[in-house]
Amino acid sequence: MKQRGFTLIELLVAITVLAIVAVLGWRGLDSILRSRTSLTQQMEHTRGIQLSFAQMQNDLEQLASRDDLAQRKNLQADNQRLVFVRTQSPDHGPTQLVVVSYRLRDGVLTRRESAATRDLAQLDVLWQVATADSDPGPSVALQAGVSSMNVRLWVNGAWVAPSNGSSTGSTGSTTNADPTGLEMSLQLTNEPNPMVKVLLLGDA
């Protein structure tokens, strides 16, 4: 009995079908890998922002009251930076005051902390240095890829968007009362929606 093999055309058709299946399979795998990479990056960014918010919350919960500062400024905010005075209690030591600055510069959110002091005159110098962006101390990068930062203050039962350089505890304040809460909104590059966190100020 004569055995019949594959013809050249049948082999070409089979190879073509296998090639099409291989291409489709590669595209599907490539799509999965790209999605996984994108998801991993989003999770890393989310984790970084959450850690930044946690640091802000810890700082702002220790916001120094104006009474402790002899009615000096205790917070200044705009959409590029957040500067405030917080208390710090070292182990077995007296409470000290520290000027903390959060800034958005070149897409990076940073945190800087001044030296601790109990001298209000020295605190005035540290405050002026911080608000003038001339602090020579090192800053800590908290999150990269931040395209914008927006701050609102909770004052007298309503959200108030501070104007550039507005502060609390000064004669030039844009509000009639001290804020009790702060809303921080950070927009990440290539993300559709900002990440928002509401923070209490001091023991409010």
Rank of each mutant, 00 (worst) to 15 (best):
Y102V: 03
Q42H: 06
L51I: 09
S163N: 13
Q143R: 13
A70C: 07
G107N: 12
H45C: 11
N58R: 10
L60T: 07
G93C: 13
A132D: 06
D78V: 04
T189P: 09
D91S: 10
L75I: 01
D30R: 03
D78S: 04
A121T: 12
R86S: 03
K2C: 15
G202W: 12
L39M: 09
T189N: 08
Q96W: 05
I32V: 07
T189Q: 08
S52T: 12
A77V: 02
Q76G: 08
D30I: 06
V99A: 04
P136I: 12
V129H: 10
Q128C: 09
A116M: 10
R81T: 15
N74F: 14
L51Y: 11
T16P: 04
L69V: 11
L126H: 08
L29H: 05
S35M: 11
Q57A: 04
V146A: 08
S35N: 10
L123M: 08
S35V: 09
T189W: 12
G165I: 02
S163H: 13
L82I: 05
R4K: 15
A64D: 01
S147E: 12
P179D: 01
S31E: 08
V23D: 00
A204E: 04
V155H: 03
V160P: 01
L200P: 05
A144T: 14
T16C: 08
L153R: 01
N74W: 13
A161W: 13
L120Q: 04
A77T: 01
S65H: 07
M43G: 10
Q55C: 06
A22W: 15
S89A: 04
L24Q: 05
L104K: 02
V13H: 09
D135H: 07
I15V: 15
S166G: 00
G169P: 05
D119E: 03
N164G: 15
P136F: 11
V198N: 06
N79F: 15
P179G: 03
T180V: 14
I49P: 14
M43D: 05
A19E: 02
S114Y: 14
T95E: 00
D78R: 03
D124L: 06
R47C: 14
Q71G: 05
I49E: 10
L126K: 09
V98I: 07
Q41A: 09
D106P: 03
R4Y: 15
Q55S: 08
M56F: 07
T131S: 10
P179C: 04
T189F: 12
T174Q: 00
Q50E: 07
V125N: 02
R4W: 15
N79W: 14
M43S: 11
D68Y: 11
A64Q: 03
D68C: 09
G145I: 09
R118V: 14
S101C: 11
T180Y: 14
V85Y: 10
R111C: 13
G48C: 09
E10Q: 04
S166H: 01
I49T: 13
Q55E: 06
V17M: 09
D91P: 07
A22V: 13
S139G: 13
W154R: 03
T40F: 14
R81N: 15
L142E: 03
V160R: 00
N190G: 07
V129W: 14
M184T: 02
H92N: 14
D203W: 11
G169V: 02
R34I: 10
N176P: 11
A70I: 12
Q96L: 04
M56K: 01
Q3D: 05
L142P: 02
P179H: 06
A204H: 09
T95S: 01
